[in-house]
């Protein structure tokens, strides 16, 4: 282990794949840092509402189907799991398995988006619009937040399929899988955001 650290510490070649991978990961984390902030504003817009006008949220919740959303949450968690299994597969050198796992990630992500659209449709029938005088102000706090997250999922789904096709073309290997890892960071972050949103919007 000590020897490893040493070789790592002495690498000053900025062009080495290792250095580039490290750069990419750091950049992704910085990007996620800024995502944390932007989500926190949208979350705040909901949280203020939850704290200051709780009766409106309670009222709106009667229209929301917890079991439906729980299934959807499960779908997204599963896609995150599939993602990380895909990474494990390529680390072990199994390209076919990686392609299958990442493909599953994309399909599950897509399922999440479609189910969310179904949910929106249901809510619309219940009379919860983006803004309406009668149904209270739940919609304007709910839709932007979930839709912004949903947009991230859509981007992730597209990215997953890109990674999958690159995998089919055998562009990754056990020594070069940084592209998958970076996508993984993004995808898990989207998952983490949903974990928080699910609890905050539907349960607390």
């Amino acid at each position: 282990m000590a020897q490893l650290v040493e070789t790592h510490g002495h690498t000053h070649d900025h062009e080495s794949p290792q250095a580039k991978a490290e750069n990419l990961k750091f950049a992704m984390w910085l990007y996620l840092a800024s995502e944390v902030i932007i989500f926190s504003i949208l979350i705040a817009a909901f949280a203020i509402f939850r704290v200051r006008q709780p009766e409106m949220v309670d009222e709106a919740r009667e229209a929301l189907s917890i079991s439906f959303v729980s299934v959807n949450t499960f779908v997204l968690l599963a896609s995150s799991w599939a993602m990380v299994m895909g990474l494990l597969a390529i680390q072990k050198g199994n390209n076919e398995s990686m392609v299958r796992w990442i493909g599953l990630t994309g399909v599950l992500g897509l399922t999440f988006v479609l189910l969310q659209l179904v949910e929106y449709q249901e809510l619309r029938h219940e009379g919860i619009a983006l803004y309406s005088e009668t149904a209270g102000r739940f919609g304007q706090r709910f839709y932007p937040l979930t839709a912004f997250h949903g947009a991230h999922v859509i981007v992730g789904v597209i990215w997953a399929f890109i990674v999958m096709f690159k995998g089919i073309k055998r562009q990754y290997s056990p020594t070069n899988y940084i592209g998958i890892e970076i996508f993984g960071l993004y995808w898990h972050f989207v998952d983490v955001v949903w974990i928080i949103l699910f609890t905050m919007i539907y349960l607390i």
Partner: peptide, 18 residues
């Protein structure tokens, strides 16, 4: 640190806004 620091900033921001 890159994750935790903005998380603190964000949470403090949310608490302030509430």
């Amino acid at each position: 640190y890159t994750l935790v620091f903005p998380l603190i900033v964000g949470i403090l921001g949310i608490l302030w806004l509430i």
